[in-house]
Amino acid sequence: MSHSDQNLNLTLRVWRQDGPSDRGRFVDYKVNGISTHMSFLEMLDVLNEQLVAAGEEPVAFDHDCREGICGTCGVMINGQAHGPDNETTTCQLHMRRFKSGQTIVIEPWRANPFPVIKDLAVDRTAFDRIIESGGFVSVNTGQAQDGNCLPIPRQDQESSLDAAACIGCGACVAACKNASAMLFTSAKVSHLAQLPQGDPERSQRVVNMVAQMDEEGFGGCSNTYECEAACPAGVSVEHIARLNREYIKASFCSTAVPATKSK
């Protein structure tokens, strides 16, 4: 049996919290015979089957596509957002990254704007409100063939699409010591500012999105770049610099002021 075919016996130290107002606590669970071919979420499925069989409440965690594209999953694994691999979501993380006998600490994303709903599931609607405040183009810009009619320099196209790769998982916030949402917000600002479709609204967009980001209670950016390292979509902090440029330009060279609206 090769090393990667071994089965793992693990201790899971999982954050359990019955609901938003429960104080919560860590509980240790043992799971045995975990195949190294399993994903991290499949390992949690095994734990939950075990818990249900024992008549206990299963661990709540978010997931949907399980193929790394939807951004629904995400937990802190031994202090790292989405676990030890770069550019990998929790659902794409494999158990072969762990060793038998290891203790794995599993915590929810922590940030005031991401309150815990239950166990490992957090409320990320703060991100939706940031997008609602400006992460869109107000007019119909047509179909794919209309897009092909617009001359867009290849560099801008690539950079814009790199930013558009954000799946809104929240790992950037979770990994940041300030719980800052700058990487997420900048990804959307940068995606649209570099395309002709997004250009007309670029000033109002950045001003509104930054105002909403601040209002939600995310921290500021200290440029520690932990977000970039934790991001499963490989969104670069270059986009944060572009947000900064967009914001400074919008503030000093346009008439855009933040449209004040509350949550």
Partner: peptide, 12 residues
């Protein structure tokens, strides 16, 4: 901005 901290944190 983060009232409840992590038990463990490690750089990626």
């Amino acid at each position: 901005a983060r009232k409840t901290g992590y038990r463990k944190t490690e750089s990626k």
